[in-house]
Design a protein around this nucleic acid. Sequence first.
RNA 1: GCCCCUUUAGCUCAUUGGUAGAGCGCUCCCUUGGUAAGGGCGAGGUACCGGGUCCGAUUCCCGGAAGGGGCUCCA
Length: 812
Amino acid sequence: MAAIQERWLPVWDELAPFRSGRPDDDRPTKYVLDMFPYPSGDLHMGHAEAYALGDVVARYWVQRGFNVMHPIGWDAFGLPAENAAIKRGEDPVRWTYENIAQQKSSMRRYACSFDWDRVFNTCDPEYYRWNQWFFLRMFERGLAYRKDSNVNWCPNCQTVLANEQVVGGLCERCDTAVTKKKLTQWYLRITDYADRLLDDMQQLEGAWPEKVLLMQKNWIGRSVGAEVQFAIEGRDEPVTVYTTRPDTLYGATFFVVAADSDLASELAAGTPAEAEFTAYLEKVKNESELDRLDASRAKTGVDLQLHAINPVNGERIPVWASDYVLADYGTGAIMAVPAHDQRDLDFALTFGLPVRVVVEAGEDPAVTGVATADDGPHVNSGPLDGLDKADAIDRIVDILRERGTGEPAVNYRLRDWLISRQRYWGTPIPIVHCPACGEVPVPDDELPVRLPPAEGLDLKPKGTSPLGGAVDWVHTDCPRCGGPALRDTDTMDTFVDSSWYYLRYADPQNDEEAFDPEKVRRWLPVDQYVGGVTHAILHLLYSRFFTKVLHDMGMLDFTEPFTRLLNQGMVVMDGSAMSKSRGNLVRLSDELAVHGVDAIRLTLVFAGPPEDDIDWADVSPAGSKKFLARAWRLSGDVTSAPGADPTTGDVELRKATHRAVHDSAVAVESLRFNVAIARAMELVNATRKAIDSGCGPADPAVREAVEAVAVMLSVVAPYTAEDMWSRLGHEPCVALAGWPDVDPALLVEESVICVVQVAGKVRDRIEVPPTISEDELRERALAAPGLVKALEGRGIRTVIVRAPKLVNVVPA
RNA sequence: GCCCCUUUAGCUCAUUGGUAGAGCGCUCCCUUGGUAAGGGCGAGGUACCGGGUCCGAUUCCCGGAAGGGGCUCCA
């Protein structure tokens, strides 16, 4: 096996069958993309699976005559390089590029069908320059902005995190409990695109996993309701609340503002409750995100001893501050309707506040402790009495609008994307802070703002950007007034890098612009994207956002970047994720050494549907190897010459061949690669039989079959296939041999077995032509001996005929 | 708590409103001049359980069980 690998690698290097940028290439195009890897160490089992799957698709479309762009690059910015620098004093640049070289050489041996002419790394200044360029365009459009806010803070990584990077209150990267910190940070206004991110999912219906679409939908969390203004006694400005249930306005018995909002501090100032509030706020600030997420914990709050006025009935209701209301959702203040909202009810019961039912829907919540959210006739609600929910909402919105105290509103769970990071190994934010001019963009012709060398910088996480230590780099002149100014010292979230890399592949060397729109038009959108489900929200949502922004800038003519998405499963061992600490790590390099590249690829692809997890304990690379050897041996048995006319060959074997070629193509196109391989295995078995005990090795049908096997295998086991192709007397590459044409005549069966049933039970089988008429079939079936016997002379009530496969006789 | 998916041979999975299949594994036989291998034969199924529709349900519908996944103070 090793010998075969060594034989063909140099040949493929020479012939470069997967180069997609030849100027005279007039094949139609396809774009197959694997999510690019992060260069931490060498490739592992997960990579091996993902790239084997992507390769099947890419190689298949090449066989079908397409010019396939199947690029690779490296997602090379990020914390591991920095951590290696901190722990072992390595230079992040060297560490990163060495790992890339290592992975690249492993990919070559793994025979990935990448177009090596298109490689780039996101840490190349030639690439991140365009991150900065896009940032500046967004800044000009008001889509990139800085604001002071309570942000997610990971005390371990010592950096801020985007909402998407907080999973269940923990840092996505290191599982540390996330806290809040008030900081001024850069954001991208993804919320402006919330509706389009939602609506455009229609384009992806059926082409992306249902699960991913659902997760994105939940994440965006569009909610429709109304904003209602409440006057506050002793304050000029009214306070607006957001509610999805304006119809329950008459049931509002108190009012709550988020304790950590500016509004709360403002309202508390000067009240007798101020001291109590300040103490409470201190406590709230120290809570971790994890604490806050525990919905079952007791409600807490402070009575601000103020009153809000219900705009519809003039009722005075008490104003409280609590941490169960979020400062950054809606307006940071709510009207509390305890009868019909569980959280409000819990709060009311804790503090002895009144509960008033306004929708008749079951038991009294004040007694049961369970708020009712169902529809029902409204009561205690003045003009809404008797109406159901939908009508009551319409009515109350009309009333509020008339009085100018409210209007319909939409809110999203999605927050703007926080992109500043207080870390070294990322794209510098191209902004200069000038004491006179404020935030000044670095002019385009001064891009890229290069990362200063790590040498001499303190990269240890300490809560402020390491770039601040690069004194010469930080101090600069203001591009606007020329006065002394300071560079922004934060770097961009690395998800910015991956939000547009798929566009750069179409034009990777361009140093005039991020990409030539013409080239992008030729290749994009991506026809098939392959990657892990871990990116269901983060990377995929951000990429969709970038695509829409660039579309609005006139740079793209499509609005969704990835036409079809495949989320491959994980490779696990004995039912759980592989890890060194668990002691169940299977090393890819070991497996490759024992079984060879082809057997490992085949094992991964054949293990099951690609989206399912693979338990390495359940699969058999040795079995894969055995199958490949069995297929390979066929190529030595063929005795007819290349070009032998198959039409004179054995018809039964030819049928098996054409059926297999047809079925496996259908399977590949619907991403059921394991099925495609099963079909190839069946053909290998049929061919073996034909050679040993059928038409014999000289029959041209045998050559046709074996050549078909070689081409089918070429998409998953390239070394074996290439060697077979060579033994069959052909020049390389089998990868470009072309998928065999299917003769439809050979797919038609000459006769089929028809089942003859009595009352649904099979009593006989008869062989009939597939084109048999219903009448003819009925007649023949009724004469079948098994049927006559089963009927035992009973009469017949009905005969159901489903030509040509079945006849069912219902006896009287 | 809410929502979604899955359940077919020992294992991993195909398939189908009408005969339930493949690979691996297993049994046995042949080969011993392809041999740390090769060829062949075979066993193995109440298609999770219970109801319904239908001439006929593993498939469609309803309910339940088991396993997996997602969301969860977002007003």
